[in-house]
Amino acid sequence: MNMFRFLGDMTHLFSVLVLLLKIHTIKSCAGISLKTQELYAIVFATRYLDLFTDYISLYNTVMKLVYLGSSLSIVWYMRRHKLVRRSYDKDQDTFRHHFLILPCLILALLINEKFTFMEVMWAFSLYLEAVAILPQLVLLQRTRNIDNLTGQYVFLLGAYRSFYILNWIYRYFTEVHYVHWITWISGLVQTLLYGDFFYYYFHSWKNNEKLQLPA
């Protein structure tokens, strides 16, 4: 495993853990989109179906379980915890995320590495991950609130995307048969969407003003 991949995994892990720890500690999820968090939970659940069929390494298995557990915990806190769920911006978090799931499923049925249940679910998880940040973007735009989304969370997710792209480039040039078009293209789309988020975050931070996304 190369250093880019490892750093990508670690920053991804910390982004989820920082969010979970923050919700757990301050008993608030203001500014966090439940829709995005639910989409991430679906992404992990559908991608890691291979936990039951393929063993890669102890590292992979443990990381998959931690990602699944922490993202499900975030959803649990936001839906069920009596204090946390009171702080949820329900009226603002109106992005209809079901309309993202269906197109991703159709795309996965059409474009996949092999037409089997596992492969379709795997492709679906990648397409869904690419667009899962959208409800969070819409919520930010509505509330114009960056105080509650910590700088760390934004920074860690951005670092995760960047390291994974460096990892793909590195592996493409150092390994034989390493080609994953579906992963690369959906990963690139995700990074571009995220870059947009990043740009406006830093812009508003630099000018010391509240976040203004273009309408």
Partner: peptide
């Protein structure tokens, strides 16, 4: 025959 790369990333 095309060789399939294992899905070893997260």
């Amino acid at each position: 025959k095309e060789q399939k790369h294992p899905k070893d990333e997260l």
